[in-house]
Design a protein around this nucleic acid. Sequence first.
DNA 1: CATGAATGAGTATTCATTCAT
DNA 2: GATGAATGAATACTCATTCAT
Lengths: 215, 215, 215, 215
Amino acid sequence: MAVKRASERRSDFVAAARDLFEEKGFENTSVDDIVARLGVAKGLFYYYFDSKEMLLDLILEHMLMEIESAIAASMEKKGLNAIERLGELIKCGADITFRSRTIIRYFQKERNRSLHLSIEKKSLEMMLPALERIVRQGNEEKVFDAPYPREAAGAMLFIISGMRALMPEDPSAEDMLRYNKTMQLYSERILGAAPGSLRVYEEMLPPELRRRKGD
Amino acid sequence: MAVKRASERRSDFVAAARDLFEEKGFENTSVDDIVARLGVAKGLFYYYFDSKEMLLDLILEHMLMEIESAIAASMEKKGLNAIERLGELIKCGADITFRSRTIIRYFQKERNRSLHLSIEKKSLEMMLPALERIVRQGNEEKVFDAPYPREAAGAMLFIISGMRALMPEDPSAEDMLRYNKTMQLYSERILGAAPGSLRVYEEMLPPELRRRKGD
Amino acid sequence: MAVKRASERRSDFVAAARDLFEEKGFENTSVDDIVARLGVAKGLFYYYFDSKEMLLDLILEHMLMEIESAIAASMEKKGLNAIERLGELIKCGADITFRSRTIIRYFQKERNRSLHLSIEKKSLEMMLPALERIVRQGNEEKVFDAPYPREAAGAMLFIISGMRALMPEDPSAEDMLRYNKTMQLYSERILGAAPGSLRVYEEMLPPELRRRKGD
Amino acid sequence: MAVKRASERRSDFVAAARDLFEEKGFENTSVDDIVARLGVAKGLFYYYFDSKEMLLDLILEHMLMEIESAIAASMEKKGLNAIERLGELIKCGADITFRSRTIIRYFQKERNRSLHLSIEKKSLEMMLPALERIVRQGNEEKVFDAPYPREAAGAMLFIISGMRALMPEDPSAEDMLRYNKTMQLYSERILGAAPGSLRVYEEMLPPELRRRKGD
DNA sequence: CATGAATGAGTATTCATTCAT
DNA sequence: GATGAATGAATACTCATTCAT
């Protein structure tokens, strides 16, 4: 009925699809589901997209580009020392992790292993070099002491993403603080940074939970 | 066809299904595939199992039990110190990882999130307490210094599984050694163990790659 | 509901499909049409056939074999002179024409031209050599005088099939007789046979229309 | 877009459709294809035509009229004897055959049998009476001896169209000559014309293949 | 226990046609 | 006249599940 601008409809489809993929996964989301959610006819989907597969590719591409540019943006800031830079990257990573859940899940599926580019790796491939550069910078600045910077970077990334999984769905303030402290502690140990030097995670806490001066 | 004992038939189905799930994934394995592999009629499947889903649950349960008892076995050994115990557990974990690839893959798929029991978590939930106990033991034995033992255990598990992803498909001897050294280095740092004290990983190397005394 | 023997069901499908193809053509016959006619579920079709295309191939192959063996049978008879042999072949051809209408029509469609084996040609390829041999035999027996036996055979086939098209749907006795006489006349001319020597067509008339002795 | 006169737009559509039908067949040509070729919007098609089917009818009608007038033109020439007239008609037929391939193909499809007007018949119905008149004229002029002029005309038409099917896709000069000679031979026989009297086909050969005087 | 014929809801995709702008 | 977004019925095909034998 209501006629919309092509770009708007397109976005509607993408948004609906993204939601549904998130909710039920790509394979279990039918084109019928998508059009039903928008309340439009099935044919309209194919007016905008060549196939279901192609829609996924679009969403995917878009997400990867978002990730890439977010990382790039955080790395382009001038005049930051290693610790500050680490803070920037980790904040940006938190954001990515949140948004890319769906993609990651989809690409963990075996049908896509054939693509030889698991997005897990893809997203890793984007974060890893950035983090590695920071580790090297920190080593040079003598604030870190991390042999094998690439592996150190990897270890950081894995515990960051893994730890999140350990947290309960609805973490209490206490959970958050505990998560925070442990992340800081083990990050410092891996990077060989001075205890207490990585206040990064702390800054990501909501203000009311932050440690006050003198704590 | 030959009439088999119920339990034997059941096992045949489970075995065939396990193979096929491994080969082509759960979603891509049809009931037709399973009965074709066994050379029996389709109806027989539903004589033994209520649904395809239910068969998966069975297989799963079975696998989880295997994992559970493997972990339990490794923890029941008496008279080991924390470092020895850690070695046992890590070896057992490597084995688990290898065998549970399929399940893990399947449970990473979102349709199963509805089950609220991601196997990733499931298997974590089994490894974690064991590893946590070891960390505590090590703290008591003063060979480790790891506050937040549970989180330390988590961090260990994540870098173990994550690092593997960083390795190339066909790792060279050099890759293996590097993997080994970094695992040891960062494990020691996380656990607060003395440098060089965790020779665990080293022992998992093929003999020709092991460091000789004095290296 | 009612469970039938596989072979019987298969035949039912083939028969229904053959009818429907005849009625509405292959492209315009949907699998839904076929199962609806048999009053069975859609899935059953795919239990017996891999695809709609494959069913057509089956029907086709079967028909071509029928044609081939009919021609072969008519050519294997021993001790016939050219004129008798011609009679046999023409009778057999009439039968074929009748039965192969559907196939021919389907293969006239362009999608199949890609197959480079228009069945028109296919059926021609089967009739032509047989007829050509007869023409040569007739030439040798001095009852025919037809240079270019292959082309003479072709010309015969074309006017036989063409003339039929000229006839009204429900030919009167008079139409039949006229058709008969002209076929005889022009066949004789093409083959260079003596006027009145080819009584073949006459024999195909229903008895009450046949010329009585002395006509 | 530029606003065109209605009649011009109509013609554009007809032309584009004709091309596409020729290229890919009627069924495989979508309205989308047609408007895409013209670079106009889909709705415009339905502004000019009630349906795709109706467009085909239009094209068809148009083609049939072309054929009709071509035949009429060839028959209106004054002062030709039967043999000359035959030549004219055959040349015109060759032209028709060439241009109407698509239509013929389409109308051979059974969906159109419902229309009860196979174009094969349609075009026959147009050629046949013209040829029949020529045969009668030839009979009167004593250059032909063909009883049943209508059927003789039919036989001629069938072998003309049929023989073409016997020729290879890319006929050699030799093929062409052979085709020529046989067409002449069997045409003369059917019409009861003196051997060598029908040089019509010969004249349609490319000049370098024509028989020189005294051959 | 075992068979395999039968079911039917579900899937992605196509396309002639309509209609608000 | 012209646009292009929107429709919806149709199509071939899949597969977990049922059930008569």
